[in-house]
Design a protein around this nucleic acid. Structure first.
Lengths: 97, 97
DNA sequence: CTAGTATATAGACCGGTGTCAATATAGGTG
DNA sequence: CACCTATATTGACACCGGTCTATATACTAG
């Protein structure tokens, strides 16, 4: 039951309404997004947002960068590749860089 | 918390070690796979396998077909498309039929 | 240093979910 | 019909995970 499989960890990180919203917001934004912006989109408290961002960070889905007071999040560089890799193992989907 | 979003339902269905193994076995098999074959791959009891198959079925990830005594499972026809759709919303990945 | 803001952590609560043993259903075969 | 095998369902249990409030940490500004 305890699965340290990175694929499972990544999928579980994505498979949550709040975290999927966060990832989509990141994907839709050209650059990084301030952590404070996620508190608005999802109707959850600030600690809950922080918790979800931690899950995404530990799954390797996002990267963080501190710029002064604020902390900016972005999709991890290899996120698309990892997603495609899982997809390829599921349906022979063509992978894209 | 109660999310009826089909994307979330599909992702949650995939984000489990046993179910991911089942899906990969289905993807690797040219045709359908008998339900009895999944009991071997994953070290869980038969009712647990049945439970996971139900989750996958209700998420629309797999289809079932009864042939005599056995029940055969296969990836749902639109599984690859749905996967690509989610990927496209996350990283602008190219979708594949 | 003090005050204020942004983010993270700790701890508690609770609903969801994976698991099993036991039982039920469905279909084949004698 | 009775019996056997394959699959599903039920019910119970434990644990994981999402959420909150309260508090701590990090950084800036004055």
């Amino acid at each position: 039951m305890k699965s340290t499989d990175p694929d499972i960890e990544l999928l579980q990180a994505i498979a949550d309404p709040v975290r999927l919203s966060i990832l989509r917001q990141l994907a839709a934004s050209p650059g990084s997004v301030c952590a404070c912006d996620f508190t608005d989109c999802c109707e959850v408290s600030q600690p809950t947002v922080s918790h979800h961002l931690r899950v995404l960070r530990e799954a390797g889905a996002v990267t963080t960068e501190r710029r002064g007071t604020y902390i900016y999040y972005d999709l991890a560089p290899d996120f698309a590749r990892r997603w495609s890799g899982i997809g390829a193992s599921l349906a022979g989907l063509v992978s894209l860089a």
